[in-house]
């Protein structure tokens, strides 16, 4: 029924380099009104018009949900990705008019929790910036453990320490500081919820340890947008609309479908929300599934694909679109 989310016309109000890798972008509404209120953990999808191609990437909102005069996101430069972060770092300057989506939250706090235990790795800190601000404002009980490579790459570590004092613990890779995960997870009061955001390896490690220490899955929340991966170009037939399209190296399948004038639904563009799920009518080749939505069984069956993050290699692919 709905394609994507409602859009917001914004202007870039500030661009602030945070450290060697990370830059922060501020957006305000072009009409000067307040932006919609959001909840900690929400993201927006940013439309990047780069010549004749458009990329849409999701980024967590990191400002306080209590302040809706502007939205802020932080983007880590990725030199080998599909170019979205490079575009933001190189081309986006204050004053540029852009379009972003309404906020969507796929990583929300479980407000029943007796305590919120948060584990961040690297740029995975951004959703926790908003969540800690929200919880601190409401007198919530939380603790944040933040791992970064070096102190100078510890994006916002200083801000967080200043805001929340001892509730924030830092771990620096270059100083061989490691979270004692076993101890941490064994000493939390009953009713604690665990949140993890960071590189896939960290998320998997934490989830596995938590499971083996008896944390029920409902108490473990993780956010990992699978960024769409570049890959070899491939051709796809869209059976419903009767079109044949080519998916470029740096393009996602979803972007290629959209470029052909077909608008499948989407929300996260990161393989987690399930909205873009598409039936495969026939295929001859190999699927490269990158989503966190479909079951393993679905992946094996080859009957479904999430075009926002997944790709295909082989002779032919026909989709029900």
């Amino acid at each position: 029924m709905s394609t994507g989310t409602t859009k917001l016309d914004v202007v870039v109000s500030d661009v602030v380099p945070v450290n060697d890798l990370v830059t922060r972008f501020h957006f305000r509404r072009r009409d000067g009104e307040l932006l919609p209120t959001f909840s900690g953990g929400a993201h927006v999808v940013v439309e990047m018009r780069d010549g004749d191609r458009t990329r849409l990437n999701p980024y967590s909102l990191m400002g306080s949900p209590l302040d809706t005069r502007e939205y802020t996101i932080s983007i880590r430069r990725d030199d080998v990705g599909r170019g979205g972060s490079l575009f933001m770092h190189r081309q986006v300057k204050p004053g540029l008019e852009m379009v972003i989506s309404y906020p969507v939250n796929l990583f929300s706090l479980d407000l029943r929790a007796r305590k919120h235990l948060m584990l961040a790795g690297g740029i995975g800190i951004t959703p926790f910036m908003a969540q800690t601000a929200q919880l601190a404002g409401a007198g919530g009980n939380f603790e944040l453990h933040y791992t970064c490579r070096t102190a100078s790459l510890g994006t916002y570590a200083d801000v967080l320490r200043e805001r929340h004092g001892n509730r924030v613990r830092l771990y620096h890779d270059d100083r061989e500081e490691r979270i004692d995960l076993e101890r941490l997870l064994s000493s939390q009061p009953l009713g604690t919820h665990l949140y993890v955001c960071g590189p896939a390896g960290m998320i998997n490690w934490v989830r596995a340890r938590a499971a083996s220490l008896g944390w029920p899955p409902e108490t473990v929340h993780f956010e990992h947008f699978a960024a769409p991966q570049p890959g070899a170009p491939f051709d796809v037939e869209l059976a419903v609309s009767g079109k044949t399209i080519r998916v470029g190296e740096q393009q996602s399948l979803l972007e290629a479908i959209e470029a052909a004038g077909v608008d499948p639904p989407y929300l996260c563009r990161g393989g987690v929300c399930g909205q873009c799920e598409t039936n495969v009518i026939s295929s001859d080749g190999k699927f490269i599934h990158n989503d966190h939505w479909l079951s393993e069984e679905d992946h094996r069956s080859g009957c479904k694909i999430m075009p926002c993050v997944s790709r295909f290699e082989g002779k032919s692919l026909v989709l029900e679109r």
Binding site: T5, T6, Y102, V104, L267, G274
Partner: peptide, 11 residues
């Protein structure tokens, strides 16, 4: 339920 859990703000 699938529809409702995806209801968007403003929609």
């Amino acid at each position: 339920l699938k529809f409702l859990t995806n209801i968007q703000q403003g929609k």
